[in-house]
């Protein structure tokens, strides 16, 4: 909803506020109305797409082979990128946090503080953002080019449900692979942090992880893990929606890939905000 609202505001600024041809209030009102109409149409289309997903996901036949293929692409082929980013993230966070803790003589808290930051927030969000870029753009561009080259039409005339084959499998894969990537990223980031701690101090591997796991609590791990399913789902949903509804032509492919990344990333923050509110609600 927020991504569509952002789109509306952007288009409004571009088409109405900075358009020298529109110089009276009436024209601005007409433009506003058409933008509101477009926003509502966009909203309803996304809602229909969302409902369509839930209608198809439980209905046989199940495209297990395609689901495994997409899971491999989304999960396995993102390992290196996620691992590199996570290691740097853990290392940099540790190096940046150390001076502040040293001032209070609290550098022994460093492993615990970094671990809580990574597990609760930074790990899931950064990994989701990387996936919104890598996976979202890939799905958006792939589906849009399938649409432009009539591959989706071709499935439909063969009597195969393209929504089920193309969309459902990708959304499910994104939903299930992102949590695994986040667990992997958190682990690698903690290794990065261990490396960062040992740049200035000497802490054994065992002591570092004892410190980490003593301070990590079920309420740190569980909500953070659950929200990653929603991150994955929203990235998959938005990128499939953008690709599946792309305009014809190569320009449409570029736009779909771009929109998938932009709105997928935005959705990650929106979901995170909602998840934090819900977590706080339960913790109080």
């Amino acid at each position: 909803m927020l991504c569509l609202m952002g789109n509306l505001v952007f288009k409004y600024h571009k088409q109405v506020l900075f358009n020298p041809m529109i110089d009276n209030n009436e024209a601005v009102i007409v433009k506003k109305e058409s933008l509101i109409k477009r926003y509502l149409v966009g909203m309803s289309k996304l809602t229909v797409f969302f409902v369509h997903f839930f209608k198809e996901v439980f209905k046989p036949p199940y495209e297990f082979k395609e689901f495994m293929k997409q899971s491999y692409r989304i999960g396995n082929q993102s390992f290196l990128l996620v691992a590199t980013t996570a290691f740097i993230m853990g290392l940099v966070l540790t190096i940046q946090s150390r001076p502040a803790l040293v001032q209070f003589g609290a550098q022994s808290w460093l492993p615990a503080m970094v671990a809580v930051s990574i597990v609760r927030e930074i790990g899931p969000v950064i990994t989701a953002l990387i996936c919104a870029g890598k996976v979202g753009s890939g799905i958006g561009a792939e589906l849009a080019s399938m649409k432009v080259t009539e591959q989706i039409d071709s499935m439909e005339v063969s009597g195969i449900n393209p929504f089920k084959y193309v969309v459902v499998t990708r959304i499910l894969s994104a939903t299930l692979m992102l949590p695994l990537l986040v667990v992997f990223a958190d682990t690698v980031a903690l290794f990065g942090s261990y490396f960062g701690v040992n740049l200035k101090d000497t802490v054994s591997f065992q002591l570092f992880f004892i410190e980490v796991f003593q301070k990590l609590d079920f309420s740190d791990v569980f909500p953070a893990f659950i929200k990653t399913f929603f991150f994955g789902f929203s990235i998959g949903l938005v990128s499939c929606y953008m690709g599946y509804n792309a305009d014809n032509g190569t320009e449409g492919v570029g736009k779909a890939a771009n929109s998938a990344v932009v709105f997928g990333s935005l959705m990650v923050f929106v979901v995170d905000m909602v998840a934090v509110q819900i977590t706080n609600l339960f913790s109080t």
């Binding site: 080019s145 399938m146 080259t149 009539e150 591959q151 039409d153 071709s154």
Partner: peptide, 9 residues
Amino acid sequence: LFQSAALYD
């Protein structure tokens, strides 16, 4: 038979 053949890439 589609104009572009529409093979799955």
